[in-house]
Design a protein around this nucleic acid. Sequence first.
DNA 1: ATGCCTTCCTGGGGAAGA
Length: 265
Amino acid sequence: MKIATFNINGIKARLPRLKEWLEETRPSVACLQEIKSQDDGFPAGEFEAIGYQAIWHGQKSFNGVAMLVDAKASFTGPVEVRRGLGIDGPNDGEGEQARYLEADVNGVRVVCIYLPNGNPHPGPKFDYKLAWMERLRERMAEIWAEEVPCAVVGDFNVIPHDDDVWSPKAMASDALMQPESRAAYSRLLADGWTDAMRTLNPRGGVWTYWDYQAGAWQRDHGFRIDHLLLSPELADRLEAVGVDKDHRGREKASDHAPVWVQLRN
DNA sequence: ATGCCTTCCTGGGGAAGA
């Protein structure tokens, strides 16, 4: 079973690139973030046509998450378990943002998250980020108590270590690498979850995001913020992880690259 | 450095991203 996460930065603008990636790499489960689409604008038929069954949690203009499952490979699901964490956005009266989707796939619980960016720091958006991370931690503890194999994947918007970024100095004031952001991420690992990429690449130096600006891609000025966290049962099945880096270099690419984990059966 | 680029929503230019 191969579980992938991909912040696509707009499903309408990215549809040809996204379908290309699915057909070339054929993940069993693909968790998407920043679809930037309302529920009724989601192109489910486009995915069905290439053998993927989808569920989605959309929002106008911003955010939005989705989960695709390879029906051609006879994977069952996604059977939705939950959408949203029940936490309002940082602006008064805006309600909850579309950032969380949880479903069962072949007996594995898959959680797709788009964690708040938190910039500028300090401020209400940063406070929202930290509150969201604490709520996520609570939900992960609930799933842990169910003793179901689980992968929590997505755009965490956290650079866990200094060796996960091209220049810690250049990013020092960013919400992605504030000590509070890192501490909240570390608590998830301390709870027993395994960072799949870190486990197989303990020295860092692997990027999943390159900014559109300042020639970041050409200069390899990237960092790692897209993560795959595994419950103990899935960590025991960890076989390989990777970044589909070449997809970042294509025409009309997202600023994130897809990241995946291969699990033994 | 309120910069750089890209998307969305909308038909001009602002918000958001990281």
